[in-house]
Amino acid sequence: MSDVIIIGAGPAGLQAALTLGRMHRSALVVDSGEYRNGTVLHMHNVVTNDGTAPVDFRATARAQLQRYDTIELRQGRVGEVSPADGGFAVRFEDGTVEHAPRVMLATGMRDDLPDVPGLAELWGVRAFNCPFCDGHEFAGRTVGVLGAERAEHVVRMLRPIGVSIVVFDDGALDDDRRAALESLGAVVHRAPVTSVAPDGEGVRVSAGEAIRVDGIFVTNAAMRQRAPFADQLGLRMLPSGAIEIDEMGRTSLAGVSAAGDLAHRASVPGVMAAVTLAAAAGQLAAIGIVQELVMA
Rank of each mutant, 00 (worst) to 15 (best):
M1D: 08
S2I: 00
D3C: 12
I6V: 14
I6R: 04
A9P: 03
A12P: 04
G13I: 04
Q15Y: 12
T19F: 06
R22I: 06
R25I: 05
L28P: 09
V29H: 13
S32L: 10
G33E: 11
V40A: 15
H42Q: 13
H42S: 13
N45L: 11
V46D: 06
G51M: 06
T52H: 10
V55G: 09
D56H: 13
A59N: 03
T60P: 00
T60V: 12
R62I: 00
Q64N: 15
Q66T: 10
R67F: 07
I71L: 05
G76K: 02
V78P: 04
G79D: 10
E80C: 08
G86A: 00
G86P: 10
R91D: 07
G95C: 02
E98V: 13
E98M: 13
H99G: 11
P101D: 10
P101H: 09
L105E: 07
R110D: 12
L113A: 04
L113M: 05
P114H: 09
D115S: 13
P117Y: 08
A120C: 13
W123V: 07
W123A: 11
F128H: 14
N129W: 14
H136D: 06
E137A: 12
E137L: 09
G140Y: 04
T142S: 15
G144E: 09
L146R: 10
L146D: 01
L146Q: 12
G147E: 03
G147Q: 10
A148H: 08
A148Y: 01
R150A: 14
A151S: 15
E152T: 01
H153T: 05
P160H: 06
I161P: 11
I161G: 09
V163M: 14
S164A: 15
S164W: 03
G171V: 06
L173C: 06
D174I: 00
D175H: 14
D175G: 10
R178C: 04
E182Y: 03
S183C: 02
L184R: 11
R190W: 04
R190Y: 00
A191R: 11
P192N: 03
V193R: 06
P198M: 05
E201G: 03
R204P: 11
R204G: 15
S206Y: 07
E209L: 05
I211H: 14
V213N: 07
G215R: 01
F217T: 01
F217D: 01
V218A: 08
V218L: 12
A222E: 14
M223R: 14
R224S: 15
R224M: 07
A227I: 03
A230W: 02
D231L: 09
Q232H: 03
R236F: 03
L238S: 06
S240Y: 14
E244V: 03
E244F: 00
D246E: 01
E247N: 11
M248P: 00
G249K: 05
L253P: 02
L253E: 06
G255D: 08
V256D: 10
D261V: 04
H264Y: 12
P269A: 14
G270S: 03
A273V: 05
V275I: 14
T276L: 09
L277W: 08
A279L: 05
G282T: 00
A286N: 07
I287F: 01
I287W: 05
G288V: 10
L293F: 12
V294G: 04
M295Q: 12
A296T: 02
